[in-house]
C-alpha cells in the first residue's frame, strides 16, 4: 500500500472511531470528547505553524480568542445567527493572522516567540479593556435559544458531539491533504532549512505567511466553535495559559504528525481532568509535562511511533 493510501485509511479510521465512540461513551465522556475534538482542532491549527513550518508561537490564544469573540460579539450584539457568526469568527482570526504574520515574520527564533507572546498579551488586555462589551474576565453566555442551526439544537449533547466531529474531521483532512501537496512539502523544507529552500527558488516569506494565516484561521475556527458549542465566551481563552496549551498538546502528541494534536489533547485533557479531582494546582501537571517533554521526548508520542514502528506515519 502506498504511504498516501495508508495515511488516508488512518485518518478515515480515526474519524470513524470517533463517530462510533459517540454512541458508546457515557454522557460524561461524550461531553469531554466533544470538547477535546474542538481543542484538538485548535492544536491542529497550531501544528501547521509549529510542527510543520517550525515556527514556535507563544501567542496562539489570540487567534482562538479572535474566533471566539468574533462569533460571540456578532451573535450577542449583531444579532447574527450561528453560521454567519461562525464566518465572522474565522474572518476575525484571519485578519489578525495577516497583521501578526506581516509583523512577526520579520523576526525569527526567540524574538518571534516573544513578539507573538506580546501580541497575544495585548489582545488579552484589549479584551479586558473593553469590558463593557466583552464582560472581561467574567465573560458572557450565548443563550441556548441562539444556538440553533438549521433546526438543530447545538446544545443537545449528541448534535454537539457530531458538530465537533465535523469540525475536527475537516481540519484533519484539510491539513493532512495540505501536507501531501507541494505547498505543505515546502513548509517542511522551510522548517528543515530555510536558506536552502530559498536558494531552491521558493518564496520562503510567502510560505511562512500563508502558514500563519492558515494556522491562525484554523485556531480561530476552533475558538468560534468552542464559543458556539459550549455557549460561553470569556477572556481566559485569550490568556497565556491558552497559548501554552496547544504547544503542550502538540509537543506531547507529536509535532509534525497529523494525529499528534488529537492524541496530545486527549492525554492532557484527561490528565488534568483526573488531577483536578484532588488538587486545584492542576497546572502543575502541565508544567511538569512541558519540562519532561523538552528534556526527554521532543518527538512526542506519535513522533516516537513514527520513528520506531511506522516511518510512513503522516
Amino acid at each position: 500500500m502506498s504511504p498516501s493510501a495508508r495515511s488516508f485509511l488512518l485518518h478515515l479510521g480515526v474519524i470513524a472511531g470517533l463517530f462510533v465512540l459517540c454512541f458508546t461513551l457515557s454522557d460524561y465522556h461524550q461531553g469531554n470528547l466533544a470538547r477535546i475534538m474542538v481543542l484538538a482542532t485548535y492544536a491542529i491549527g497550531y501544528n501547521v505553524l509549529f510542527g510543520y513550518t517550525g515556527l514556535l508561537s507563544l501567542g496562539h490564544a489570540m487567534f482562538f480568542a479572535a474566533g471566539m469573540y468574533g462569533l460571540g460579539l456578532a451573535m450577542q450584539y449583531g444579532g447574527m445567527s450561528p453560521v454567519p457568526a461562525f464566518a465572522v469568527g474565522i474572518l476575525t482570526a484571519a485578519v489578525l493572522s495577516v497583521v501578526v504574520g506581516v509583523l512577526a515574520l520579520r523576526t525569527i527564533g526567540v524574538a518571534f516567540m516573544i513578539v507573538t507572546l506580546m501580541f497575544a498579551q495585548s489582545v488579552f488586555l484589549i479584551i479586558l479593556y473593553f469590558g463593557t462589551w466583552t464582560r472581561g474576565d467574567e465573560g458572557f453566555v450565548i443563550p441556548q435559544a441562539a444556538r440553533q442551526v438549521l433546526g438543530m439544537d447545538l446544545t443537545d449533547p449528541l448534535i454537539r458531539y457530531l458538530a465537533a466531529l465535523l469540525l475536527f474531521s475537516s481540519a484533519l483532512l484539510i491539513t493532512a491533504r495540505m501536507m501531501q501537496v507541494r505547498f505543505g512539502r515546502v513548509l517542511i523544507a522551510v522548517r528543515e532549512n530555510e536558506e536552502r529552500t530559498q536558494m531552491l527558488g521558493y518564496d520562503v516569506f510567502r510560505h511562512k505567511f500563508l502558514a500563519v494565516l492558515i494556522s491562525g484561521s484554523i485556531s480561530g475556527a476552533a475558538g468560534a466553535a468552542y464559543g458556539l458549542l459550549f455557549g460561553y465566551v470569556g477572556a481566559t481563552f485569550a490568556s497565556v495559559q491558552y497559548s501554552i496549551f496547544p504547544l503542550l498538546w502538540v509537543l506531547l502528541g507529536g509535532a509534525g504528525t497529523t494525529i499528534g494534536p488529537l492524541v496530545g489533547a486527549v492525554f492532557m485533557f484527561y490528565l488534568i481532568d483526573y488531577s483536578s479531582g484532588f488538587t486545584n494546582a492542576y497546572m502543575l501537571i502541565a508544567g511538569l509535562a512541558l519540562v519532561l517533554l523538552v528534556l526527554f521526548a521532543r518527538a512526542g508520542i506519535m513522533g516516537e511511533v513514527r520513528r520506531r514502528w511506522a516511518p510512513w506515519l503522516p
Partner: peptide, 14 residues
C-alpha cells in the same frame, strides 16, 4: 546544505 532529516527523494524532488 541538504535537508538532512528528509529522504533523498524528498531532497531531489524539492
Amino acid at each position: 546544505a541538504i535537508y538532512a532529516r528528509l529522504s533523498l527523494f524528498e531532497n531531489i524532488a524539492l
